[in-house]
Amino acid sequence: MTQPLRYAINVTLDGCCSHEEGLPPDDESVAFWTDELRRSDTLLYGRVTYELMEGAWRRPESGEWPDWMDDSEVAFAEVMDPMRKVVTSGTLDAVDWNAELISGDVVNAVRRLKEQAGRGISLGGVRLPVALAAAGLIDEYTFVVHPVIAGRGPRLLEGVDDTLELVERREFRSGTIMQRYRPVDAAAPRNTGG
């Protein structure tokens, strides 16, 4: 049995995925993301997402979290910082922050990663998920949809053709909505409402 690969990302109403777009994080949304991290024991990122996360959530050398972090953000960082990270990159020579680097055939490397023992793999980013979705490797999608129209930025899963089934939905006080989906098995009979 393989461990699940779960893709989760913040997205605007028009499908943009930029950390600069959307509502500012609040205690409720940060607590949600902290719980999402706890569902997995491995984080899988491309270079851009890895560097973004490392810059924001790696424990400083001083050992003290920055003053800008509130209690919910410290709790998130405390979960993320020690987690195993797997980074796919064709440009990096080395990684640290509890990370290992994979290059070359990313799809086969992720297949092997899924075969390892574990609670699950949490996938982030914009470009890497496209390749993994096209290969049928993503077991669950979680979209945290912000009530914002960005009008610019990278688009969610550009070029991917798949049918998803809603398995969970939750509204946050901010108006943000979490929607969790699983791919519909093409071989399974579909509910046609009849």
Rank of each mutant, 00 (worst) to 15 (best):
R182E: 10
G153F: 02
L101S: 09
P129E: 11
S122H: 15
R112C: 08
E140F: 05
D14I: 02
E36R: 13
V74H: 01
P82S: 05
S62A: 14
G63H: 07
D105S: 10
I121K: 05
S103Y: 06
C16Y: 03
R170M: 05
Y45A: 11
K114R: 09
L113R: 03
A134Y: 00
W68Q: 15
S40D: 03
W68R: 15
C16V: 07
S29E: 10
D105Q: 08
G151S: 09
D162E: 12
G159V: 01
T142E: 11
W33F: 08
R111D: 08
R182W: 04
D41W: 00
C17L: 08
R111K: 15
R152D: 10
E64R: 13
V87Y: 05
A134F: 00
V107G: 15
E54S: 15
R112Q: 08
V160C: 12
C17A: 09
E115T: 07
T34L: 02
N10W: 02
G125P: 05
E64L: 04
S18H: 10
I138D: 09
L132N: 07
S122M: 10
A8L: 01
I177M: 14
E100N: 11
V87T: 02
V144T: 09
L52H: 15
L123N: 10
A109F: 03
A187I: 00
D41E: 07
